[in-house]
């Protein structure tokens, strides 16, 4: 499963992270090939967000190494786009949709230089892509949850990155937005970008993503969805935390017990997401 060729977009080696005394990630190895659309899945407190934050250099690792196309993140920053959790910012901040999207260009602008007409144009284009152009001049507090998420996506789009990290982009969005986001993600993948998405809804993993990483403090499994997203692995991730201790023994493959480990999906997904979704 593992090889050491240089084609990986993201390589994580022996990564251990601890908050104060509490380990959050134990010795995680993860190789993400370029051009995949990967979900990171695991229970609450599994370290999903932390994993992304370590890769982005926002959280310090106790041990281990992260590289982006074989080099350190700080050298490859321009290749990376980031969509934080929607709830992490104050949406009552006095600023407009367009202004937030232009923040995606700040990194390329560097210090002091202000965004100009070029940044404005690319921001408007990105807003067009997420269907928000009409709201470009609206104050961000007047947006619905789904619209807020689209703004964040547009901001990532103007970063014009090769690799995107997204932290729960489907959290609390309406069904229309969810479909729009999925379409956008798949379009980006078709352009050859690599996408790593923290995801909560197990029921949609198979339909939305082509790769998946199962994480629960340590990496349980990682790879193409059809190989890795198995009941056994899910149980290792969510259910019997004891189970993996005897990993040499074969797991009896029972079919019943998954539902109780699946985090109750969001209402929108239950109501509309599954039935209306067209398969990719």
């Amino acid at each position: 499963m593992k090889n050491y060729s240089d084609t990986f977009a993201i390589e994580v080696e022996d990564l251990t992270v601890a908050y104060r005394d509490q380990p959050v990630l134990w010795d995680v190895d993860l190789n993400v090939p370029a051009g995949v659309l990967m979900a990171i899945v695991g229970p609450n407190g599994a370290g999903k967000t932390t994993l992304i934050k370590v890769i982005l250099g926002l959280v310090r690792a106790a041990a281990g190494r992260v590289s982006i196309y074989g080099q350190s993140y700080s050298d490859q920053r321009r290749l990376v786009g980031y969509v934080p959790q929607r709830g992490s910012v104050d949406w009552d901040f006095p600023t407009s949709v367009l202004d937030v999207v232009m923040m995606g260009r700040y990194g390329a602008l560097g210090w002091i230089r202000r965004p100009g007409s070029r940044e404005r144009r690319s921001a408007l284009e990105a807003l067009d892509k997420v269907g928000m152009r009409d709201l470009a001049h609206r104050q961000i507090s007047q947006l619905s949850g789904g619209q807020q998420q689209r703004v964040f996506l547009a901001r990532a789009l103007v970063q014009d990155a090769q690799i995107y990290f997204m932290d729960e982009p489907f959290q609390g969005v309406d069904a229309t937005t969810e479909r729009a986001i999925v379409a956008l993600l798949q379009e980006l993948r078709a352009e050859g970008k690599t996408l790593v998405v923290v995801h909560h809804d197990l029921q949609t993993v198979v339909d939305y993503f082509d790769s998946v990483t199962l994480l629960n403090v340590r990496r349980i499994a990682s790879g193409p969805v059809n190989e890795v997203f198995t009941e056994t692995n899910l149980r290792l991730t969510y259910g019997g935390r004891i189970a993996f201790l005897n990993r040499t023994e074969d797991q009896p493959a029972e079919t019943q017990n998954i539902p109780h480990v699946i985090k109750p999906a969001k209402v929108e997904n239950d109501a509309t997401g599954i039935g209306e979704r067209s398969n990719p």
Binding site: T16, A18, P23, W26, D27, R218
Partner: peptide, 10 residues
């Protein structure tokens, strides 16, 4: 202690 654990887990 943490380092020991880390080593064994690694």
């Amino acid at each position: 202690e943490f380092a020991q654990t880390m080593l064994t887990i690694h």
